[in-house]
Design a protein around this nucleic acid. Structure first.
Lengths: 213, 213
DNA sequence: AATAAATTCACACGAACGTGTGATTGATCC
DNA sequence: GGATCAATCACACGTTCGTGTGAATTTATT
């Protein structure tokens, strides 16, 4: 069995891409099995030989790196993705993590540390540049622990929300609460406005992500 | 101006506390200015000489470490707090970060790395043990149920399911995968049959709870 | 008493969803 | 070569959902 870490590079700038390839192939235990210029190219050939790790640039022509991660993780959830970028753009960090990336390095990371980070990634860690890590951690300061404190739901709305979250149909909620289905609609409409969601699925994704009560 | 990092230790177990104190005071650039046994004691004396960094145990008698962080950050927001614990209890990680801690290490961290982490902390990083980092990153992942050995989903079905679970509309899934919406319908119809559910909500409730890999 | 808020119901429209049936293509297995 | 299955697309039908607008009733609140 081969214990080399198989790596795919997705990076549009030729010098960077080739630099990475040379670094990886010149290091024992690491092997570059593909080096693509675009996200589309990467999605095309990732099925050929599945990598352990994908090094993904964010700023790509055409499909962005973050979008590419969604596709990779959806079709091959076991592949680990490390974002590589020059900037520490706030929102793109979180978009990447939501998409399923588990590592996030700045391109200025020295070669030795990059290799170490790739190893960490396959071992179950989440290597991040320290600036990135701080931003990730700070995102929790804002996040509120309780269910929907900011939403200001009325007690009736909370009640209906709980049925909604259990998967009841509108008419089932109406029957359970002995009210008209139109009333249920009205409440849910207001709930969605307050929660800033557009569908039940969006609401559930928010609702179920909260810490268990 | 003093370039030593001033450190406060809050740890109830005497050997660990003294071990840390000795390590810190024996290392150039680091100085332990206080070592407390309880959270209450720490809150009492933190005003005497403000530390740059607090090493905070979580499991303390009386007030818990996480609660203590809230108080420290409220009265002295510029102080950096690093949690130190033996376990990687999920919820306590997030409670700590919400409270305002910016570092989180397991106690098994080797001395040299601990000192390095303290330096990172004052430099604006957020040092975390790799296991912790992965958990933090995973908190951002949009859930995608993908392991149902009993359901016998094809790889394409798994893929579509993961979009379904992220709240994509049918037409968004179609656009993402470059296929027709009718094909999406067909796949989802089969998925629902195999999973024995009748709506997306049922599917989410049934499968969204499992831990991520 | 007047105002505001919560709760209730109504109607209409379009979007999104779930089901049923059928068909074509390509790959795989026997 | 035939059978099976995965993946693709098509059309039709009914259900459910989300939104907009409007209104009546009850319950605080001031």
């Amino acid at each position: 069995m081969n214990d080399e870490i198989r790596i795919m590079i997705v990076e549009d700038q030729e010098p960077v891409r080739e630099g990475l390839r040379v670094l990886i192939n010149g290091s024992e235990g690491y092997r570059c099995i593909a080096a693509c210029r675009t996200a589309e190219e990467a999605l095309d050939c990732i099925g050929d030989e599945l990598p352990d790790v994908v090094l993904m640039d964010i700023n790509l022509p055409g499909m962005r790196g973050t979008e590419c991660v969604v596709h990779i993780k959806n079709s091959h959830p076991e592949v680990q993705v490390m974002m590589l970028t020059v900037f520490e753009n706030n929102e793109e960090i979180f978009t990447s993590l939501e998409a399923g990336a588990t590592g996030y390095l700045l391109k200025k990371t020295p070669p030795a540390q990059l290799l170490q980070a790739i190893s960490d990634l396959v071992k179950g860690g989440s290597p991040m540049s320290s600036e990135i890590a701080r931003k990730v951690v700070q995102r929790f300061h804002l996040s509120s622990p309780s269910r929907f404190p900011e939403a200001n739901l009325t007690s009736r709305e909370e009640e209906i929300l709980s049925y909604l979250a259990k998967g009841y149909l509108y008419k089932e909620i109406a029957a359970s609460l002995f009210i008209n289905i139109e009333t249920v609609r009205t409440h849910i409409h207001k709930i969605y406005q307050k929660l800033q969601v557009r569908t039940r699925t969006e609401m559930l994704l928010k609702y179920l992500r909260q810490p268990e009560q």
